[in-house]
Design a protein around this nucleic acid. Structure first.
Lengths: 346, 346
DNA sequence: ATGCAACGGGAATGCGCTTTCCCACCTTCT
DNA sequence: AGAAGGTGGGAAAGCGCATTCCCGTTGCAT
């Protein structure tokens, strides 16, 4: 048994299709109350559920928001997703989800799928990239998005404008002050750390990573400190772990006390885990800082100095929440104590 | 400019609507290659994007999977979401997301919305509840789901069957062996812990929590240990933190060395944070275990003994992945060492 | 009493597509 | 050569709904 239709309801109520439609699905014209009641009763009795597809087709507006993330299980993205979801709820829309692992070609595909579903808007999160191997993919993604916009779609981009897009029409970029915040973080860290700095960054060409690196270097420079050495690795825990292993060697060999800035919290956790595995103590032998202030990691010890990013708000903004506001974020300097001071008294 | 339509493509290619449809959208009938080529060219030139809504309407299958979670930013749910997303990808479908904060009435609403969109199937994750205040909501949710199933929908439920559902038709429950695994965990913990056990559980009536508590008690009993005292609190970090504060008092006052089992990792983290804040050392003064083996928390120290749950697989199964398999999970006993052994040698 | 506007319900059209059904044409076998 | 069967394209009928006209009623002012 397929779901019952509006015309069945209309027939049962003894009214026309038009009237039934007007009663059940918010129209400007309100039929008389007694008729309306009859229709509602009929609908109830038949268990009528309006067909949103048909509605969308008829009034060409789907009530859908497309969300593109690299990986929904990554806390960075799931926090953004929460914001998008919330905005959608307020706008009485639903969220369509696509995970892409970050490949522009997958992203292009997702955009096409969203466009096919006539999503009212698309939110695309996840670092844009300028890596040569992504160039072709970026161009195609940009073309797909441009087309979507030309057809009246709205695109919310988290972070950086789409590489290769030829228009601004329909785009709404939520700027994340990665560079400035990283500079601020560097400044604060410089105040409490004597030794050298090392940056554990993602692959070159990843804007988010590059911005944070650039900002960090600027902050160091402003604080009168030498540039940090930059280690490139994967933009995830595994990458951080690998970098951490290498750094551990160095720390143990040279006895220098480094301050390591990983460009996101998850990488920082990887670094920490590797150092710990290699017998490097924090903060005795090294300091570690991250970026994003991932909620689940706030209780992590040794505590990560990090930068708070209002990810949920970012998602909300990208999804076009009217009561806008801009992204600010703030540095969270935390004492990395292996044994919290309070513990000493226990 | 609205997106171009199939009939525009057909006209440009000089063929009928039917032919264009057959060329562009997988039909069993394959038109001649030269004609097909003409159509494809026309489509390309016009930037044709098929209208999925119209397609869905015409062939009454939307290619949508609805996913209902309590909170997409919760790592437990986002891990499941990843699995669902993956299954969807394989089935060539898209995921529609709804977060509900756990209220059955919201869940009902989400189901209705999915039904309206004619989702091919719905996955509903998040603990079912038997709490009296949810009874009415549960009934309505069950009615909505039953109706959806009657209309040919498929429902994948994570954990427990829907409370109040009057049919099995269309339902597919992915059983999670919470009880057995908790028993196993208790057994393992009993082997290495001498003192008393305390369980930090969620509100009474939450099946997931209740199952884990019951299993844990059973495991203790089987190991010849006395029942654990059960503390009820919120099913999240804050709840764990609150419980942790209370337990800290006790630990400090009585000098007893407890083993605390929090019914999920996030709560366990809360407990740990509270104990730490109160100057209780782990593992010197207490032991802590959790459940779920949340990925982001694996590097947490003191390490959580926990139970691995293949959340991604669970999501995949609930989303109806054909190459089934059942949920197993396994206990992960971890030494809770404040200072990892390796560190001592540094 | 008459005219007009406002109102409320219904028939019909179309949203963009899939899918039967039909027909013209071309093979192939007896 | 003729019939039976296959092949490939097109016309048209919906899928379920919103919405535009259209028309019969009613209320009110004239």
């Amino acid at each position: 048994m397929a779901a019952s239709t509006l015309s069945e309801v209309a027939r049962l109520a003894g009214v026309s299709l038009a009237t039934a439609s007007r009663v059940l699905n918010g129209s400007t014209r309100k039929p008389a109350e007694d008729i309306a009641e009859r229709v509602r009763e009929a609908a109830e009795k038949l268990g009528y559920v309006p067909n949103a597809q048909a509605q969308a087709l008829a009034k060409s507006s789907s009530g859908l928001i497309g969300l593109i993330v690299h990986d929904i299980a990554d806390p960075y993205f799931s926090a953004i997703a929460r914001g998008v979801q919330e905005a959608a709820r307020q706008q009485n829309r639903m969220v369509l989800l696509a995970s892409t692992s970050g490949a522009p070609s997958d992203e292009r595909e997702a955009v096409a799928a969203f466009a096919a579903r006539r999503a009212d808007s698309i939110v695309i999160a996840g670092s844009r990239s300028a890596r040569p191997e992504d160039e072709q993919g970026n161009l195609e993604l940009a073309a797909e998005l441009d087309r979507y916009c030309r057809n009246g779609g709205h695109v919310g981009v988290v972070g950086h404008p789409i590489v290769g897009s030829t228009t601004n029409e329909g785009y709404h970029v939520v700027e994340v002050p990665n560079e400035d915040l990283a500079a601020e973080l560097a400044d604060e860290l410089a105040a409490s750390h004597e030794g050298a700095f090392v940056v554990v960054g993602g692959p070159e060409g990843l804007f988010t990573s590059d911005d944070r690196i650039r900002g960090f270097q600027r902050g160091l420079a402003d604080a009168g400190r030498p540039r940090a050495e930059v280690v490139r690795t994967g933009f995830n825990r595994a990458g951080g772990y690998d970098a951490g292993l290498a750094l551990a060697e160095r720390i143990k060999a040279s006895d220098e006390r480094l301050c390591i800035f990983a460009v996101n919290d998850v990488m920082a956790i990887g670094v920490t885990a590797a150092l710990r595995a290699e017998g490097v103590w924090i903060p005795r032998d090294a300091n570690i800082a991250g970026f994003d202030d991932i909620e689940t990691l706030r209780d992590f010890r040794p505590a990560l100095s990090t930068v708070y990013l209002p990810l949920e708000d970012i998602g909300r903004l990208a999804a076009g929440d009217p009561d806008g506001g801009s992204v600010v974020g703030s540095v969270k300097l935390r004492r990395s104590t292996e044994l919290p001071a309070e513990s000493q008294t226990a």
